[in-house]
């Protein structure tokens, strides 16, 4: 175990954390604001990258590719939303259906132009294409360093979200997540808002995916597997560490991005300590399970006032 190898890996972890931070902000919108667990993001986290890479290899500029990736994500969110609201499918199941369907679609997208018509991955080299970011530049002090690009994207996204959730429409989305009865009584179309929230969330996740595939130089049909867990981990870590300090909405989103960075730093340390990378998903699942259980445990076992009240009764 040489500390140098860990230090060398840290910039990459930061860059990855920033990119996944964007994804986690998307998860925050459904999970925290709308109070829905949307599992379609596991599919969207590959769709965005697939669309981005295939557009670029077919000669479109990176910005057009990015835009189309986001639109593809928005469309995926719409599908989940329709499953949930118009077809009455519980949101978790609706997300799983979309995610499963997207797997086939992602294979098709990546296979555009190939003789087989499907492909499970597609590379895009920074030498041949004008990418926004690449892990090759992660240790350079320059504007095209993926950390710098990531920071710009995260900051812009937080700015847009801060503005949006302060508008009339954005407030009605927050109300929908906070209290549906109250929202309907105040004339808010809660179904429409849920669909809208899912669309925004998946659009953001697809953006993150499109950036990630540029960073790593390829898109892969499996790159979104377990994305929801990483997103939740980032949201929860951000909340646990910065929750008391960051009460403003923009800062809360920032905490989510920090959460993702911390997640990847921790992963890097764990790998450095000798854990096999194939065991990472198990580790992530366990960590998220423990953090999700924490508030429940706190309520159940540590709440003294409750116990005392019971003793009095």
């Amino acid at each position: 175990m040489n500390i140098q190898s860990l230090l060398n890996a840290l910039p990459g972890a930061c860059a990855q954390g920033l990119i996944w931070g964007i994804m986690a902000i998307g998860v925050y919108i459904t999970y925290k604001i709308l109070d829905m667990a949307d599992l379609s993001v596991d599919g969207t986290m590959a769709t965005g990258g697939a669309v981005c890479v295939i557009m670029m290899t077919h000669g479109y500029s990176v910005w057009v590719a990015l835009l189309c990736a986001v639109l593809a994500g928005i469309l995926a969110g719409l599908v989940t939303g329709v499953f949930h609201t118009l077809m009455g499918i519980p949101v978790i199941l609706a997300g799983i259906l979309t995610q499963l369907g997207l797997y086939s679609i992602n294979l098709r997208i990546l296979g555009i132009g190939t003789s087989a018509g499907t492909a499970s991955n597609l590379t895009i080299s920074v030498d041949r294409y004008n990418l926004l970011m690449s892990l090759r530049h992660v240790r350079e002090i320059a504007l095209n360093n993926p950390i710098a690009v990531g920071v710009i994207f995260v900051a812009a996204l937080i700015g847009v979200m801060y503005w949006f959730f302060g508008t009339e429409l954005g407030c009605s989305l927050r109300a929908t997540g906070a209290n549906q009865n109250m929202s309907r009584a105040q004339g808010i179309n809660t179904s429409l808002n849920k669909v809208l929230g899912l669309m925004i969330s998946n659009g953001i996740v697809a953006l993150s995916s499109a950036l990630l595939c540029q960073y790593q130089g390829f898109a892969d049909v499996n790159m979104g597997r377990g994305a929801i867990v990483i997103g939740l981990a980032a949201v929860i870590i951000g909340d646990v560490i910065f929750g008391k300090l960051f009460t403003n909405f923009a800062l809360k989103l920032l905490a989510v991005a920090f959460g993702a960075i911390i997640y990847y730093l921790v992963i890097q340390v764990v790998l450095w300590l000798g854990l096999n990378s194939s065991d990472l998903k198990l580790l992530s699942a366990l960590i998220v399970a423990v953090f999700l259980a924490a508030p429940y445990w706190k309520e159940r076992y540590l709440s003294r006032t409750k116990k005392e009240a019971k003793a009095d009764a």
């Binding site: 302060g166 508008t167 009339e168 929202s183 105040q186 808010i188």
Partner: peptide, 19 residues
């Protein structure tokens, strides 16, 4: 914010500032 939501009952929720 609760009051602002109620104030807009029956109106379209736009992208204007919420309060």
């Amino acid at each position: 914010e609760n009051l602002a939501l109620a104030k807009r009952r029956g109106a379209r929720r736009t992208l204007r500032v919420g309060i």
